[in-house]
């Protein structure tokens, strides 16, 4: 009688496991519903344990980061001081501008960012692995009305979108992820372009599609989300134009936007729970150019980037 060789059995096991893993990968990438439900159920069991463990070790982790990131903290401190001085100078002018914008919003009925449309969440962790540096976890999930695809903002502007939602936690894909794309509107020309995150540089966003080479763009002009058919509501600030060049195809402009929100140091964020289609109700799709009146800034001031709600 033939006796099975141990080596053969070992290989069979490996082949079986590899095939199972590949099947799971394929199903997951195709968005197989039952698999999503099972994952969500497992996360619901594990997340309370993670919350407990994370809270217990938070002070120790802060001390560790204080030691290992001391140089970064010093640099960041200096930058923040400079920004604070600059902001103090601008605050009076901004107050006046905001009043005007709020009046405009009321007139145009564009106040989609009312308190009822937002859920404030605390950032409870960075990326869970070594290969997803452009994600953070927040402490709110489907039980608070969150769903995948919803935009995440701070008072300083767009931060990202929800890509994974479980009962009590969600994962946010940050705006600086090279895979993140959004339609943005430039405040000067009113032109709409498609931008993406610039992973190399945490604070910039690259718009290299949709802005024609002849369009006049000035350094310092504001960029907001375009709305319309985009999954993000119109008028959420993205940042300020910091440099302009020609795109690779020489037909369009490559506009670098310095992000308003500091995605590296998030503490509290707001999730816009109203569906983009609802928020954009009655709004025409973004036009490549011409007149448009969808400039709207967040009108509530309950959240500050990196601050308490």
């Amino acid at each position: 009688m033939a006796v099975p060789r141990p080596g053969g059995r070992r290989r069979t096991t490996l082949v079986l496991l590899v095939l199972t893993a590949i099947t799971l990968l394929t199903l997951d990438l195709r968005g197989f519903g039952p698999l999503e439900s099972m994952q969500e159920a497992t996360r619901s069991v594990l997340n309370p344990l993670r919350d407990g463990a994370g809270s217990a070790f938070d002070p120790v982790a802060d001390a560790w980061n204080g030691v290992t990131d001391y140089d970064d903290l010093e640099r960041e401190n200096a930058t923040l001081r400079a920004q604070l001085e600059e902001l103090q100078g601008l605050s009076i002018a901004e107050t006046a501008a905001l009043s005007e914008l709020e009046a405009l919003n009321r007139e145009l009925d564009l106040d989609f960012l009312g308190d009822g449309d937002r859920v404030i969440a605390r950032v409870v962790g960075g990326s869970t692995g070594n290969f997803s540096p452009f994600t953070v976890e927040i402490d709110k999930g489907s039980s608070s009305g969150l769903a995948e695809g919803q935009p995440v903002i701070t008072e300083a502007g767009l931060v990202g979108q929800l890509v994974q939602v479980s009962r009590s936690r969600s994962v946010v894909q940050l705006i600086n992820d090279p895979e993140f794309t959004a339609a943005v509107r430039l405040s000067g020309s009113r032109d709409v372009g498609i931008g993406r995150g610039n992973g190399e540089d945490q604070r910039t966003f690259i718009v290299d599609q949709g802005i024609a080479i002849e369009t006049e763009v000035t350094v310092g002009e504001a960029a907001t989300t375009a709305g319309g058919r985009s999954r993000f509501p119109a008028g959420v600030p993205v940042g300020l134009v910091s440099s302009i060049a020609a795109a690779d195809n020489q037909l369009e402009r490559r506009v670098i936007i310095t992000l308003g929100a500091d995605v590296d140091n998030l503490e509290f964020v707001s999730v816009i729970t109203v569906a983009p289609s609802e928020s954009a109700e009655g709004e025409a799709p973004p036009e490549p150019s011409g007149t448009d009146t969808t400039l709207a800034l967040p009108t509530t001031t309950d959240v500050a980037a990196g601050g308490a709600p």
Partner: peptide, 19 residues
């Protein structure tokens, strides 16, 4: 389940490494 990567990737990796 807790990683943002597709489901099955870590399972594949860990199984192959252990083997």
């Amino acid at each position: 389940v807790l990683l943002p990567s597709p489901l099955g990737l870590a399972a594949l990796t860990c199984a192959v490494v252990a083997w």
